[in-house]
Amino acid sequence: MTEPTRWLPEPDDSNRPFFDGARAGVLKLQRCDDCGGWMFPVRRRCQHCGSTALQWANASGRGTVYAHGQLQREYHVRHRGALPVIMAQVDLAEGVRMNTNLVGVSPADVHVGMVVSVDFEHSESGEAIAVFRPAGTPS
């Protein structure tokens, strides 16, 4: 029996809340205690006000598609047999732009401005990553 291939390096202290959240089905992002601004990926200092008082908080998981395209070449074990992968930048309600993938939608039906909500995809080795699907569709 071979171990299933990991998708990602092991999380570390800087990003573990994000991945723990994903495994529990919650999108966690950093929020600034001082100004309330959100950011992604991991920052040590608030991009908005410069504060270092950043905490992980639950995000809404709601957003709209800013841009999208279709990956047609395998660059990662997760892409095997999965092409085309729908790549997207999603603008979250919290004001953060996330690079991600869209699921549960045919490439031809994706469009700029599409309203999406977060979902989570699990690897055989127990990791979870955030993906997005059209709002209101079941996972």
């Binding site: 990602l8 390096p9 570390d12 800087s14 991945f19 990926p41 660059y75 997760r78 690079n99």
Partner: peptide
């Protein structure tokens, strides 16, 4: 890459092209 920057290849964001 660490786990966070490792998300780029997982999602297919390799280099500037995508």
């Amino acid at each position: 890459r660490n786990a966070m920057s490792g998300l780029y290849p997982v999602y297919g964001f390799m280099g500037a092209l995508p």
